[in-house]
């Protein structure tokens, strides 16, 4: 018995126990969201509130999510905007980060500084002028406008994250390809790019996560219900559903599911990217 206690202590299971309690307490709001979403309408107003819905009901999901064309269409819009932002970000950021890491261009450090400054621009400052610019270009109320606007946030971040990955690729590999007669572009695409795949995954994941949750541009650059992302749809429904919190929490959970899925699948890349993005400059 006493050896079991000693082993428990030695291996730090006491800390594990405390850790589990901390995490459970901290993530209670998430639990509460899912729990509320599985309640029947009358059970939301029970006092004391039920921690676990009994019996659980899928009614809110049936009616507010799968039976709601507005939410379904908004989900599709969010997928389009998120994938578009992800692709555009990588297309622009990968060559730029490569150039800034490898090519020793005159003015390179200046570009890096410019990127750091653009990271400061709050969406709310950009939303007004972007609305004006897009109005003149006839782009207001289009997927393109939202993708372009979201990329203003993801691009500087992506270049700053990717540059160190390119720096860590050994120069010799590429020199060999160049000597063999490959052009810069071909050696970049065929030799260097595959070697920075972890960086590309990090950037893709972050661009997708950001665009999926983006709210300010979606709110201010679009008035068309046909292409409104799910974040704006949810915000509108808060007013519409009033006190039907089970419905609202069901939609919230549905909006959160892709985030949780991406995070669960790519956790390693995301945690690394978070710390490197903010500390390495």
């Amino acid at each position: 018995m006493s050896t079991a206690v000693a082993r428990f202590r030695r291996e730090g299971y006491g800390s594990t126990l405390v850790g589990v309690l901390i995490v459970a307490l901290f993530l209670f709001p998430v639990f509460w969201m899912v729990s509320t979403s599985l309640k029947a309408p009358a059970d939301i107003f029970a006092t004391p509130p039920d921690l676990i819905p009994s019996p659980p009901s899928a009614e809110a999901y049936r009616e507010a999510v799968f039976g709601n064309p507005i939410v379904l269409r908004a989900m599709v819009s969010s997928v389009v905007v998120s994938l578009g932002t992800m692709l555009l970000t990588i297309l622009l950021a990968a060559p730029a980060a490569y150039a800034l890491a490898r090519l020793e261009l005159p003015g390179g450090p200046l570009v890096l500084l410019l990127l750091l400054i653009t990271q400061l621009l709050p969406s709310i400052v950009m939303a007004g002028p972007l609305f004006v610019v897009f109005s003149r270009l006839g782009l207001v109320n289009s997927y393109q406008a939202l993708i372009l606007a979201d990329t203003t946030i993801t691009l500087p971040f992506a270049v700053i994250i990717l540059r160190p990955f390119f720096l860590s690729v050994p120069k010799d590999l590429e020199s060999a390809a160049l000597v063999d007669g490959a052009t810069r572009w071909r050696s970049f695409v065929q030799v260097t790019l595959p070697l920075v795949r972890p960086g590309l995954v990090t950037v893709a994941a972050f661009s997708f996560l950001f665009a999926w949750g983006e709210f300010v541009f979606a709110l201010s650059l679009n008035t068309n219900e046909g292409i409104q992302p799910v974040t704006v749809a949810l915000n509108k429904l808060i007013g519409q559903y009033g006190t039907q919190w089970n419905s609202l929490m069901a939609i919230s959970t549905a909006v959160a599911v892709p985030i949780v899925a991406v995070f669960a699948g790519l956790q390693k890349f995301i945690v690394g990217g978070l710390t490197s993005g903010a500390t390495k400059e």
Partner: peptide, 12 residues
């Protein structure tokens, strides 16, 4: 797991 709170869309 804690990072989940940071990753949730703000609307959520």
């Amino acid at each position: 797991l804690l990072l989940l709170a940071w990753l949730l869309p703000t609307v959520v």
